[in-house]
Measured scan of single mutants.
Amino acid sequence: IRLYEREDYRGQMIEFTEDCSCLQDRFRFNEIHSLNVLEGSWVLYELSNYRGRQYLLMPGDYRRYQDWGATNARVGSLRRV
């Protein structure tokens, strides 16, 4: 999964292949505005340590956080399923 700091895949990008319990420890931002799921399925959590609202993401492109059903861009952790 590739996470981007801004909409439309702009700004700083980070790629994950494994679970991350605290996004801010690995990426200086806690807001993700766009992403690409390259393979497999992922769950994004609004808070760190896999807490808060959850969003199940299938392979595909998500140009804005609204595309995955979120009401804001906050992402605290993520897990591959």
Rank of each mutant, 00 (worst) to 15 (best):
L57K: 03
A73R: 14
R26G: 08
M58K: 13
G52W: 01
L57S: 09
G69I: 06
S41E: 13
M58G: 14
E15F: 10
R26P: 13
T17R: 13
L44R: 00
E31K: 09
G76L: 07
T17A: 03
L57H: 12
C20G: 12
Q24V: 05
R74K: 04
R28G: 08
E31T: 12
M13E: 06
Y45D: 00
A70S: 08
E18K: 05
L38D: 13
E39K: 06
F29E: 12
L78M: 14
C20Q: 09
Q66G: 11
S48Y: 03
R6Q: 06
N49Q: 10
S48D: 15
R80S: 12
E7L: 08
Y65I: 12
Y55K: 13
Y65P: 12
Y45S: 03
R74P: 10
L78I: 12
G11F: 00
I1V: 05
E31D: 05
H33Y: 10
D19T: 11
W42G: 00
R53Y: 11
F16T: 05
E15K: 15
M13P: 14
F27H: 02
P59W: 06
D8Y: 11
L35R: 00
S21V: 07
E39D: 07
E18C: 12
S77C: 02
R26N: 11
Y4A: 01
R26T: 07
E15P: 11
T71K: 09
G52L: 01
W42Y: 15
P59C: 10
G11H: 01
E46N: 02
H33I: 13
I14Q: 08
A70P: 12
N49W: 06
C22A: 10
L78P: 01
A70T: 14
I1E: 01
R53P: 11
R6H: 04
E18T: 08
G40V: 11
R26H: 10
E15V: 04
Y50M: 04
V75L: 06
I1T: 02
R6V: 08
L44F: 08
G60W: 04
Y65S: 12
R26A: 08
M58T: 14
Y62C: 15
Q24N: 08
T17P: 15
D67K: 07
A73D: 14
R64C: 04
R53V: 06
R51N: 15
Y65F: 03
R26L: 08
W68E: 02
N30S: 13
N30Q: 08
L57G: 04
D67T: 07
Q12D: 08
Y50G: 02
E7K: 14
R63F: 10
I14F: 10
S48R: 04
Y9W: 11
G69C: 13
Q12G: 12
L38N: 15
C22N: 04
S48F: 04
E31W: 13
R6S: 09
R74Y: 05
M13W: 04
W68T: 15
Q12P: 09
R64N: 15
P59L: 06
E39G: 13
L44A: 10
Y55N: 11
D25G: 12
F29H: 06
R64W: 14
D61L: 05
F27C: 08
Q12K: 12
H33C: 09
E18D: 06
L78Y: 01
R51M: 03
E31P: 15
E15H: 03
